[in-house]
Amino acid sequence: MVSLFVGGAVLAVSGWLVWLSRGREHRGHSVAGLLALAALLLWAWMVAFHAPVERAQGLVQKIFYVHVPCVIPAYLGFGLTALAGIGFLRSRNESWDRLAAASAEVGVVFCSLILATGPIWAKPVWGHWWVWDLRLTSTLVLWFIYLAYLLLRGFAFGSDTARTFTAVYGIVGTAAIPFVYFAVDLARGDTLHPSNPAREGLPAAMSETLGAGMVAFVLVFGFLTARRLAAARLESDLLEASERSPVG
């Protein structure tokens, strides 16, 4: 049941962002902002009161409710970047390129948060900061792909080829992610991560709280990406305006 909500939120946000990137005007930001805020508040309340304190790890286990929800926006971000890359290559419409840039930037923020909260949780529970386990390691590699993408975008800034090349790398990078997951599974099969936080395996209160967190974070991702998209549109309008005005 919970995954239905999460899936719905992911589809809704992705659809909204794609629609937003195509159109001229920017509507719905304040609505999305309020929705995200409401979801965050609900999630925070649930973490504090609804979710029980886990017997084995104690209170620190509640990092679970902030660590895991970051995963979806991190992978959703790069997924949208790849989708936008394909869109750009087919239509050469700059709005796709702006969506790719915005979702990559916000996606890398969430990806970094996974890598930050992971060790903070691992230290008290397993005694060392970095835990070479399947999910965390694949997320680290995803973070490197993000880094490479943003560096390429930075180094090739401006020319048309920049947009084409970043679109291509977004596609190739996303195609590599499942292989990275398999390969890390082979190399580091032993996973210290809780066997599989399949929400079904968790007691109801826990999985509901986690679900709320996921929905909230997806909405936050949507809101931040929409705002970043608006900034990107202003940038390109400014770039174009600077040419129109009589330059020397």
Binding site: G58, V60, I120, P124
Partner: peptide, 15 residues
């Protein structure tokens, strides 16, 4: 209570 709260607070604060 164990020292866990420090880590908990740190995680939520960073995010």
């Amino acid at each position: 209570m164990t020292g866990g709260e420090v880590y908990l607070a740190a995680a939520y604060a960073i995010v």
